[in-house]
Nucleic acid binder design. Structure first.
Length: 570
RNA sequence: CGGGGCGUGGCUCAGUCUGGCAGAGCGCUGCGUUCGGGACGCAGAGGCCGGAGGUUCAAAUCCUCUCGCCCCGACCA
């Protein structure tokens, strides 16, 4: 490619709204241009990078026996009615009607579409397992797109779906998929990707992992132990907190006039917040009242609680709902509740602590020495606590650290969450009708590109890994007006291209600094400078983008040297 | 969806308070000088000041309503 002909201006000043490194450089370098909030066009540079990422993803999917397909972006809403997600997914699913007034949606993920496909194509256990994948546009009507290509409304995603005769087969395949993901992210040059256990969210299913590219601008918070053995999303991170349990003391009612909050009550009674129990009331998706209790210094983790209750939605209960079960807002006690009307879940911190201060179910009074085992033996016990930085790691006991990450991929064991309601079946060896067990596996292509920049850049621009660089070699022809320079650069360009390398040649008549800055923004790993000075010695200057190497090369050595460099790096 | 901010040439912004010729830098075109980390001179092109109403002799500027975009939060395979 001659740089003079490349569409996509490099620009000196980034738009004001570009905050993160990847956003700034994708705009400044001419990789992508905004069309609307969270909707971008990719320019040739950006497309070259994503095409390389896609090629790697494709190879790795094929390697685990994936078969590439392509499903439509526009889908009939009735498929989503069948699966039940039309009701459970919110406004991020873009719904509209076609000219015949038929309800349609824009696919934000393709479980329904693939099950619809498979239920007519797969009918026997002999056809299982199978995995289908596509690299396709998705649309999610995000409430708040941000950070350039990291959080967008329209995006390209590799999504894969596997079908198995039983759970054991899924689990075995899931491990292969996990390995393929690790290889994929390593190959595209993401140095720091964690695979962490995560909450399955709207996808449903039991086991899932998120692949997090560590980056300070990431929107997800990850807890890791110092040795890296424990890694979990904040939504589900556990802690190894130990609790004290003295021998039980008799319950005692004490006056706490006007004190409602944990801090006020603890201060008034001269104890630490850890010695108190905190009560929180929720209403689940069916408006059933839930009483959650946790040690005073901890916070309820609603994701954990939601999963424990198997309720897709939770919201804080209002005062009327709280009174309905006989509790006194602000002074609620786990004792004397109407157990017919409220479900009680206590955190481990309550069950395993003793002699706590709790509400007395009466204004201006609390109880001392609440002892869960004695006073509330029938309570459900669960881990519903939000992990905090510095809490002991559940595996190692060392203090947990907090990192920020970009979710570049995820994998889920779905089970029959889609195959069952959509009546996708096969006949097993005994001629019995069965629902295939499914897994699904996603990788955000644009997000991966952005994450690579976040992890690999300097103040001047991206430092692309060879595997995904838009060009491998960048030639700067300094003082290009001199015929000997233009000729030498042209010849190098032709020879390197002929040797199979991807080369961009800056053939413009620009100042050196101007050309170098553009080269930094394009970020090709290898750079050659041709100038009257170097040609006088029959040489060109060679330099790597990452600063690791610099040398003068004789003209005759350039092609073999570059071929060798590229081969080594791939 | 709540809170905050911003819409003036392709990009960054000034001008808005206090109404009176639409401006600067970068980028773009031409000519000349320069030529190893974003050079300089001269001459140009490019704008319904987000949109619609209103007030006024006169509106980028004041008023009303809208639309778009960004940031924080809520939400989020």
């Amino acid at each position: 490619m001659k740089l003079s002909q490349l569409v996509g201006q490099r620009i000196k000043e980034a738009p004001r709204d570009a905050q993160t490194a990847s956003h700034v450089f994708m705009i400044r370098g001419g990789y992508a241009r905004p069309v609307a909030a969270g909707i971008y066009s990719l320019l040739p540079l950006g497309r070259r990078v994503t095409a390389k990422i896609e090629a790697i993803v494709r190879q790795e999917m094929n390697r685990i026996d994936g078969q590439e397909i392509l499903m439509p972006v526009v889908l009939p809403a009735e498929l989503w009615e069948e699966s039940g997600r039309a009701a459970s997914v919110g406004p991020e699913l873009l719904r509209f009607r076609d000219r015949n007034d038929k309800a349609m949606v824009l696919g934000m993920t393709h479980e329904e579409a693939v099950v619809h496909l498979v239920r007519t194509e797969i009918s026997s256990y002999k056809q299982l397992p199978c995995m289908l994948y596509q690299i396709q546009t998705k649309y999610r009507d995000e409430a708040r797109p941000r950070a350039g290509l990291i959080r967008v409304r329209e995006f390209t995603m590799k999504d894969a779906y596997s079908f198995h005769a039983d759970q054991a087969d899924l689990e075995q395949y899931y491990r292969r998929a996990h390995e393929a993901y690790v290889r994929t992210f390593r190959r595209v040059g993401l140095a720091e990707v964690l695979s962490i256990q995560s909450d399955a969210g709207m996808m449903g299913g039991a086991v899932s992992h998120e692949f997090m590219a560590l980056a300070d601008c990431g929107e997800d918070t990850v807890f890791v132990s110092p040795d890296g053995r424990y890694q979990a999303n904040r939504e589900i991170a556990a802690t190894g907190l130990k609790f004290d349990k003295d021998s039980p003391l008799p319950l005692e009612k004490v006056a706490t006039p006007g004190r409602q909050s944990i801090e006020e009550v603890a201060a008034f009674l001269g104890v630490r917040p850890e010695a108190a129990g905190k009560a929180v009331f929720y209403l689940d998706h069916q408006d059933e009242l839930v009483f959650a209790m946790i040690r005073g210094d901890l916070e309820v983790n609603e994701t954990k609680l939601r999963n424990h209750l198997r309720s897709p939605q939770l919201r804080l209960a209002d005062e009327a709902a709280i009174r309905a079960c006989g509790a006194e807002p602000g002074y609620a006690s786990p004792l004397a509740l109407d157990r017919e009307r409220v479900r009680i879940v206590v955190d481990r911190s309550i069950a395993e602590s003793g002699n706590l201060v709790v509400g007395a179910n009466q204004p201006d009074f609390h109880l001392r020495n609440f002892y869960c085992e004695r006073d509330l033996p029938t309570a459900e016990v669960a881990d519903i606590a939000t992990a905090r930085v510095g809490d002991p790691c559940p595996l190692t006991g060392e203090p947990l650290q907090e990192r920020r990450g970009i979710e570049v991929g995820n994998i889920f064991q779905l089970g029959d969450k889609y195959s069952r309601p959509m009546r996708c079946t096969f006949l097993d060896r005994d001629g019995r009708e069965q629902f295939p067990v499914m897994g699904c596996y996603g990788i955000g292509i644009g997000r991966t590109m952005a994450s690579i920049i976040e992890q690999s850049h300097d103040q001047y621009g991206p430092i692309w890994p060879m595997a995904v660089a838009p060009f491998q070699v960048h030639i700067c022809a300094l003082n290009n007006r001199k015929p000997e320079v233009a000729e030498a650069a042209d010849r190098l360009y032709a020879e390197l291209s002929e040797a199979g390398l991807e080369v961009v040649c800056d053939d413009r008549n620009e100042k050196a600094g101007f050309m170098f800055n553009d080269a930094d923004l394009i970020g090709a790993p290898l750079r050659l400078v041709v100038s009257p000075k170097t040609l006088a010695e029959n040489q060109v200057e060679f330099k790597t983008r990452d600063g690791s190497g610099k040398a003068m090369l004789a003209l005759a050595q350039v092609v073999p040297a570059m071929v060798e460099r590229v081969r080594e790096a791939l």
